[in-house]
Design a protein around this nucleic acid. Structure first.
Lengths: 340, 340
DNA sequence: TGTTGGCACTCACGCCTTCCAAGTGCCAAT
DNA sequence: ATTGGCACTTGGAAGGCGTGAGTGCCAACA
């Protein structure tokens, strides 16, 4: 039997009710809460075919139905209309983010905002280094033969690293090196920097080369090794809330939230700014998460994408609301980065 | 009836067994597992007086006893001997921390290490600004009338802030200002910087003063406002583990772990490096935590204390082990900062 | 006086049964 | 294709019972 419009409507109703109540929903409850214009028996027939097709399931024989991952998928793809944010929410986004003083602050505010809006766990990736360009390189002698390298990106991110040099550099050398470096790499993206910097030592006097190459190596390390990109997390307490309504093991979830690698994998796919990506339940199995859904999107100035952000929650989450929130926050953050 | 030595021994046994099993411990089980040399009836009498004095309690009439907060307190104060770390643990500390490349890395490794060693949630405060001294101030023009202020402390911490100036400063002014600033404030602690910097604008030509005071104000803000000191957290998943063994509400705990303010309050008291502080159960009530204990200590180069670190867990935690771990890690981190 | 064995008492917990309500599937009628 | 009706399933709540761990108390003992 085919899935006609009414059956889709039934699925939507089931998803919505189940998200609301967290209880299996039966045919009678459905006709009561939604004016579907048909009797509960009809609904039962529809439900039977929906179950046959794998969109819903019964936890036990004499209970109502709950949506399966496949059901949620269909719901998200074909049934959920964009739920506009309330004016209060829009105001919250604006007032929350406008007070930020620097990039770190923007990110930390963003992640808390997302957690609060969606009442779930939020994750925001710091603007990725690889997709950034260099705005400035600064060298600061600190003590003895040590030099602090500070790297400023076009997104406002600052990377720092202390390097121990083979010999103490004098100030003029450091000044030369600083000038030369900035001349060479400002405006370049990070992969280009690597090739440009590698032949830098040859441009200096032989006795200075150890220092120069020490700096160059460290700079490259800061670019390449620090690929291990950072993420900010908030709202883990929200997970506990629905963890007590049970059936979700939250220990693996909390572990995942502490594992940069896993988080980056979860966020990773998002490439373009506009569409919000939803990954549901088993679709995250490779990350060790099963009854968890992930709603992500990219962000960045203009049409660029320099990072991702998203929300983790139970498969039974309010998808339209979450998608709207993630989208709106990403847009606003992108705008802020644009203004930079 | 007075609390004599054997009664203390009984209390110790109760605490140890309860920490092990998480089940109320009865008189018979005690004589079986510990060679106390007396009969269960005697133990029962001892238990009765221990209960009278409020050191232990019964969850229900016909069950064994569990330690009260007061009981744990006595245990920690008078009964727990320092449990030396295993060689494997010592090795873990060393190998884990020795790979750190900069201060941020030290902190993030420390917090993960603590979480792993104690199998609980760990918290490490970034070296406090107020107790640090300035090693270097750097000014970097970024775009238009904007300048990035970078502040390097003696602990290796780097603070950054972008300031929007009323007019675009030329390079020589910036150079002068940078030199003057470093001359003035290097080596000062942060409170002294405030008073020193405030009359800086007067030392410059009138037309430059807007720029100078813009920088000065931002610098002060970075020092004072950023009092909101940062903390790193790890091991929240460990909480879930014993949260499922139930009776601890973990939602408030997770909330606390996300609230900088609460965490700082919990860490705050520690002042001196050597002794490890233990706060048990209700002693944390002002922070909204009840059946949670906190083990903290300070750390810092030499005899200075520049920050605190600690572990949060259930009142029924392994105090000797946790205290030893926190102490050892703090000592090692202090050493690393010392070497800087 | 402190310690011990004995004994009656308490009570959480597990187990079983019973009962109920919600929900289903199917069928015959419309 | 839809509907009302009806028999059937079953999880979960409520109640009853037995068991065992554990207690407090007491009288006897060293």
């Amino acid at each position: 039997m085919p899935i006609d419009d009414r059956k889709l409507e039934v699925l939507r109703a089931i998803v919505e009710d189940y998200v609301d109540t967290h209880e299996p929903v039966g045919s009678k409850a459905l006709v009561d809460r939604h004016h579907l214009g048909v009797s509960s028996a009809t609904i039962r027939n529809d439900m039977a075919t929906l179950e046959e097709e794998g969109y819903i399931a019964q936890p036990h024989t004499s209970a109502g139905r709950i949506p399966t991952d496949k059901g949620y998928r269909l719901f998200v793809d074909r049934l959920s209309t964009v739920k506009p944010l309330s004016p209060a929410e829009r105001r919250a986004i604006r007032s929350f983010l406008d007070g930020a003083v620097d990039l770190d602050d923007v990110i930390s505010r963003t992640v808390r905002l997302l957690a609060q809006l969606t009442r779930q766990a939020a994750v925001v990736q710091y603007p990725s280094l690889t997709r950034s360009t260099v705005r400035h390189v600064e060298l600061v002698p600190v003590a003895g033969a040590r030099v602090l390298i500070v790297l400023i990106t076009n997104t406002g991110r600052v990377e720092q690293r202390v390097v121990e040099l083979p010999q103490e550099p004098d100030d003029s050398l450091l000044g030369d090196l600083r000038a030369r470096l900035n001349e060479l790499v400002v405006g370049l993206d990070f992969t280009s920097v690597a090739s440009t910097v590698s032949d830098l030592p040859e441009q200096f006097a032989p006795e200075d080369r150890p220092v120069v190459s020490g700096v160059a190596v460290s700079l490259l390390e800061a670019l390449v090794e620090r690929h291990e990109e950072r993420v900010a997390v908030a709202g883990t307490a929200n997970l506990a809330r629905y963890g007590q309504e049970f059936d979700v093991e939250l220990e693996p979830l909390l572990s995942a939230l502490e594992e940069q690698v896993v988080l980056l994998k979860l966020l990773g796919q998002a490439t373009s700014t506009s569409p919000v990506t939803v990954r549901i339940g088993e679709e995250n199995a490779q990350s060790g998460l099963f009854s968890t859904s992930v709603v992500t999107t990219g962000y960045g100035p203009g049409n660029e994408t320099v990072g991702s952000m998203g929300v983790l929650g139970p498969t039974r989450m309010d998808y339209p609301g979450t998608i709207a929130a993630v989208g709106a926050v990403a847009r606003y953050v992108s705008q802020i980065l644009d203004a930079n």
